[in-house]
């Protein structure tokens, strides 16, 4: 008899097997209300997202952005410039790049305002279709982020107001802390279903409520 190495994929001991479609069938038990839930997840869909690029050292550029958006241009990593009453925020992404988020359907008008106020070497790109914003809140929201990303989410490293871009669950996300237990995640379109499934799964143990 020839010698073959064989492998029984159904061992006697119970093991967890997953179909290739497992990630598409999220069986997370969600809470019926935000009351008592450790984590609340909700999407702020269809907001206006714009990437702004230019020279931070150029006084005219800084003044033009502030005139067009009504908030000062942040010049380094740290607090996101926000006007919550108008739903406008500007986040430092890199030394020459900022993310501007505005309410739904205001993206085009915001772009036109920026173009009217700016001149010279700059760029405004409407990326509203490329990403979406999730709101994560609740007493266990920080633990979910700690499970999912390598960044230090301790209040000393991540105070309220700060915004960063980092790795999240083998993908990337923009993460902003908007309150003691409130966070915003901006995720890319192509990773949205994967990250949403991940966040639901990671939140299940704390009790998760999906805000609609």
């Amino acid at each position: 008899m020839s010698e073959f190495a064989t492998f029984n994929a159904h061992p006697a001991a119970p093991v967890r097997a997953e179909s290739p479609l497992a990630a598409s069938r999220v069986g997370v038990a969600v809470q019926s209300s935000a009351q008592g839930a450790g984590v609340c997840i909700g999407e702020r869909a269809l907001l206006g997202h714009l990437i702004l690029r230019g020279k931070a050292a150029d006084e005219g550029f800084r003044a033009g952005v502030e005139a067009a958006l009504g908030v000062p241009l942040p010049l380094k990593l740290g607090p996101v410039a926000r006007d919550d009453a108008r739903g406008v925020s500007v986040q430092w992404m890199s030394p020459d790049e900022w993310l501007v988020v505005v309410p739904e359907a205001q993206d085009h008008e915001t772009e036109l305002r920026l173009r009217a106020a700016l001149s010279g070497h700059y760029a405004v790109i409407n990326v509203s279709g490329a990403q979406t914003l999730l709101e994560l809140s609740g007493p266990a929201a920080r633990q979910v982020l700690m499970k999912s990303a390598g960044y230090d989410f301790h209040p000393s490293a991540f105070p309220v107001g700060k915004g960063i871009s980092t790795t999240l669950a083998k993908s990337t996300a923009v993460i902003r802390r908007t309150g003691e237990a409130q966070w915003e995640l901006i995720i890319r379109r192509s990773f949205a279903d994967y990250l949403y499934s991940w966040l639901l799964d990671a939140s299940e143990e704390f009790g998760v409520f999906v805000a609609r």
């Binding site: 380094k76 990593l77 890199s94 390598g150 980092t166 790795t167």
Partner: peptide, 18 residues
């Protein structure tokens, strides 16, 4: 895991980001 200081972000970040 290395902790790497990004001179642009002016922060230490996980190696995974680089």
């Amino acid at each position: 895991m290395l902790h790497i200081y990004c001179p642009h972000c002016e922060e230490y970040r996980e190696e995974e980001e680089f």
